Computed example of a mutant assay.
Amino acid sequence: MDVKIEGAGPAEPFLAAGSLLETQCRLDRPVTVTVVDDSDERTRVGHTEDGHRLTISRQAATSAIARELALHEFAHMHHYERGHPSHTQSTEEAIYLGLAGQQVEQRKLTHCYQIANHMKDIYADDLWMEVAPADKLVGFLEASLASSLADRDSGPQGWERLAAGSDAEITAVNAAFALGLVERHNLADPDHQLYDLAHAAAADAPTIEFERFRTLFKSLATDPDESEYRKRLVGITRAYAGGEQAAD
């Protein structure tokens, strides 16, 4: 795997992640990692025919989860190259199909895109968890959800996965995602603190069908075709913003 580092940041987490991922799969295109000084910079990935680019803040690149973050983003790159439905399906198309004929608040429309990203994340995590332990990820999910509950106005955390926000409804869905991912890979016992935090988030948003969202994230098919994936994405969009239940 061809990984090039730009900017004054550590190379080891990204080189180590590349070596680990190569034991499970390969990237055909080279990867350029750009480390920037802006601590508010969220991790961003871009794709061209010539390669992939990962832009990351120095704060994230030097954090305890830097290797796991790199593995996660490299896994997204692999799915993009291989044409996985989660990475080829137009999110905008599926969301507007799910909400056709309805008037939806801008905040809920924005949340639908975040939920679609959670679905992509499930498949990226499925891939990299085959080559590395996910203990640090569980700790990150716990800390991120605790931050969201303690101060919903605190702004985004380092990893975009469970960004804090002022809205109890999307916080509850984020919590359902966290439990769904943890249970999908048997990462924590039922008495883990993450469960208490998730149930608190669910209690704050009684209109959200928390258990249905948790089950949907947990049970996403491991190898869906385009039609199946589109159906799930449309269904979860309607469940959140359209007042309908998600497709089973």
Rank of each mutant, 00 (worst) to 15 (best):
D2I: 08
K4S: 14
E6R: 15
P10G: 04
A11V: 07
P13C: 07
F14Y: 12
L15T: 09
A16V: 07
A17S: 09
L20A: 13
D28T: 11
R29K: 15
V36P: 02
T43K: 10
D50I: 07
G51F: 04
G51S: 06
H52C: 02
I56K: 00
R67H: 03
H76A: 05
M77D: 03
H78I: 13
R82C: 05
R82H: 10
P85W: 07
T88L: 11
L97P: 01
Q103A: 13
Q106T: 11
Q106M: 12
Q114F: 04
H118I: 00
I122D: 07
A124K: 04
W128L: 00
W128A: 00
P133C: 02
A143S: 15
A146W: 00
L149F: 05
G155I: 09
Q157C: 03
E160W: 15
D167W: 11
D167S: 09
T171R: 07
N174T: 02
L179P: 07
Q193W: 08
D196L: 12
H199S: 06
A202L: 00
A205H: 08
A205P: 05
I208V: 15
E209F: 05
F210I: 05
E211Q: 14
E211D: 15
F213N: 03
D225H: 06
K231A: 15
G235T: 05
T237E: 04
R238Y: 01
E244D: 13
